[in-house]
């Protein structure tokens, strides 16, 4: 059963916490999306009505979209809504299907860890660089990638535990 099909009461404590984390991700990303729309409205207003183009919109928008993507992607791991091709696996006989499922989880775990690690590396190496027109650190662009990687790993671990204990 997928987390989004359950009520909070049906969840175990760990699941409840993780579900909350994924919802926070979506909420922050959602606020980012609404902000994104808003600043573009401001951009056009500034250019046509004030004849003073806000010069920070372009760079801020590029930053926001990275945060929306990675926070939303992390939540997508929790709700298992990423596009996948599972018909091949589902066609297999059970003795093959189970190891394939484990392999998929292992792959997600590994990629999540690498994503978190490399996100950290990139954030560190670009921290001193400034984003033009914004003045904030370029490293902030890589932070959501690290968060997404870490959450992917945690969510996948939980799904692994569920699979091992046969509760899924």
């Amino acid at each position: 059963m997928l987390p989004q099909d359950k009520s909070t009461a049906e969840m175990d404590p760990v699941e409840r916490v993780l579900d909350m984390v994924s919802k926070v991700c979506v909420a922050v990303a959602g606020a980012g999306l609404v902000t994104l729309v808003g600043i573009f409205g401001w951009l056009v207003w500034g250019r046509y009505v004030m004849n003073d183009t806000p010069t920070w919109v372009e760079q801020l928008a590029l930053m926001l979209v990275v945060w929306i993507t990675f926070l939303g992607a992390a939540a997508g791991v929790w709700t298992q809504s990423h596009l996948s091709i599972d018909f091949v696996r589902e066609m297999m006989p059970r003795p093959l299907r189970v190891p394939l499922h484990w392999l998929a989880l292992l792959g997600m775990l590994v990629f999540g860890i690498v994503l978190a690690w490399q996100g950290w590396v990139l954030a560190e190496s670009t921290w001193a660089r400034r984003v033009p027109m914004l003045g904030i650190s370029e490293g902030l662009r890589a932070v959501p990638m690290a968060i997404c990687g870490a959450l992917t790993a945690v969510f996948t671990l939980y799904q692994g535990v569920k699979l091992a204990t046969g509760k899924d």
């Binding site: 992607a73 990423h82 596009l83 996948s84 091709i85 599972d86 091949v88 696996r89 589902e90 394939l100 499922h101 392999l103 998929a104 792959g107 997600m108 990629f111 992917t152």
Partner: peptide, 8 residues
């Protein structure tokens, strides 16, 4: 083949 999401 394992059913991993395409992006991953």
């Amino acid at each position: 083949l394992t059913g991993m999401p395409v992006a991953f």
